[in-house]
Design a protein around this nucleic acid. Sequence first.
DNA 1: TGGGGTTACGCAATTCGTAAAAATT
DNA 2: AATTTTTACGAATTGCGTAACCCCA
Lengths: 324, 324
Amino acid sequence: MKLQQLKYLIAIKNHGLNITSASKSVFSAQPGISKQISLLESELGVRIFERKGKHLQSITPIGMKIIKEAEELLRIEQKIKTISQDYLDPDRGCLNIFTTNTIAKYLMPHAVSRFVNKYPQVSFHLSPAFLNSAGSQINKGESDFSIVAQVVQKEKDLIILPAYKWTLSLMVPKDHPLNDGRIITLEDLCNFPIISYEEGATGRESQDAAFLKSGLTPNYFMTVMDIEVIKRYVELGLGIGIIATIATHHMDEKNMASIPLDHLFSPSDAWLCFSKNIFLRNYMYDFIEDFLPHLTKEVMEKVSLGLNEDEMNAICNDFKLETY
Amino acid sequence: MKLQQLKYLIAIKNHGLNITSASKSVFSAQPGISKQISLLESELGVRIFERKGKHLQSITPIGMKIIKEAEELLRIEQKIKTISQDYLDPDRGCLNIFTTNTIAKYLMPHAVSRFVNKYPQVSFHLSPAFLNSAGSQINKGESDFSIVAQVVQKEKDLIILPAYKWTLSLMVPKDHPLNDGRIITLEDLCNFPIISYEEGATGRESQDAAFLKSGLTPNYFMTVMDIEVIKRYVELGLGIGIIATIATHHMDEKNMASIPLDHLFSPSDAWLCFSKNIFLRNYMYDFIEDFLPHLTKEVMEKVSLGLNEDEMNAICNDFKLETY
DNA sequence: TGGGGTTACGCAATTCGTAAAAATT
DNA sequence: AATTTTTACGAATTGCGTAACCCCA
């Protein structure tokens, strides 16, 4: 068994069992990959792929298990390399953060600018985190950590910590009937088509909880994750927007009004997620601590050791979370 | 980075930084090992070993971290191989159990004989578990699992489950003053030099707890782990023995008497330990379930997923433990 | 001086690339 | 017919063994 063979294996899996496309991703010739996979299969004595003629058709059950372990193994290889690089030059490297649009746009800019000034040698990458993908992106090693406002599936070795709380506001055109100075009620909201986040976003959870409790049925006629899109459609008079308050502070549209809805919806959660299996570099801790002061390096290292639920809750209860 | 290089690295570490002796353990020539380590060090860019002249003198701090990860990585490689072998022939392989003398001698024989009859293709190895070594032996991959009557350090990914309870008995020569039919008290025991288990054995814990509570100070003039040794010295009149009741059932010495001490000492614990990181084969589950019926495959797989303390306690409280 | 480590060098085995053939859609 | 995998074969690289050299107790 060779590390290369395992890398080829993962590449094939990640390219839909297409060896040719996998070979390009690892900058190697296709027949070599094919051969190495055959060699690996014959060394282990098991078929990893189900073949239909010469094409790979599916992964065998045993192949699934092997691939799962291989991914873990390669993650550790990466960890060894990162440990070494960090020792050589703690301030040089990459930072890959997956996060949602709103966070990247309204909350993160200051921390990012401080970071790039402090660590000019670190190349900074910010990528969109799609719904339900945060965990897998981290576990695939695409992302060092994620800060998201969505429901995160628990996964093995994935650590999820509270990042901050955020509130919702109503966004309507200035001349909208709801913008008459009244105290907005849930009933008011139900009288208009609503444009807001998709299910799976924590901001949507708060809304659903409040409506469910009231027995009212709101009309979510349109759900999208991108705030700009929501704004645009609200502007066009297609509905009323329920969006993050933080996003309303930066509105330059003169003909739009925003009204806080704190009295209707409880604050939503945002989470920081990272994997136990990667080596967090000092500059990563530094960024996190700058952006989320309660998540100190000390706290992060402590939770990385693998605490049980009670210990975890005890730590989380001590956090003083910012509310935006 | 090559898997071979990491194997060499671990071999050197496990042979006291002696490359020559490490090279023999991996059936390869010494210069090759030397070269590969140099290559690995220069690829990673860090010194793993501190050199004094040409001799390896110690492992650098960064080397420690790398070795720790390398061990994990190789454990996963082994897991992949085991998964494949198990698929090829579920009833062929090895079973390595580390356990204590008393368990191997008095409790395990029936389960072992059933096992070797049922699985003639599995080679069976029983090795002594020394005090405090159970966890590390498992984590080094020397042992598939351990059943011990000693205090087991919690370690990362080490799972510890209750195996059974066992009681203590007094062992004295037939003509000993304590063998006069009386109900033995703690005071009685303190009037004679005691020969029993070393600290760290769970059987010793029960004794220490009882004596501490009573305020009495017993005289452990001799502590050993081997029951045969204890018996011999008791026979010679050097002291009174406090040993596992199960060991007194098989005494063939005609001039020795044993008296249960259940009323003085609470039952001691025995534990089953195994690692989350190895693949437990079906015949292993089978052996464990035969020997310890409450530890079914289902239970073992459940706890392998990584439960928190509460869930673990809930499961353990449901066990009906045998008392020997 | 001897146990152990590194350097030098050459053989053997692997890996990988190109080209051609085979098979699937 | 086009795409994709396997087979075949040759070139470059790598891993490992022997022998010689070096260094510290």
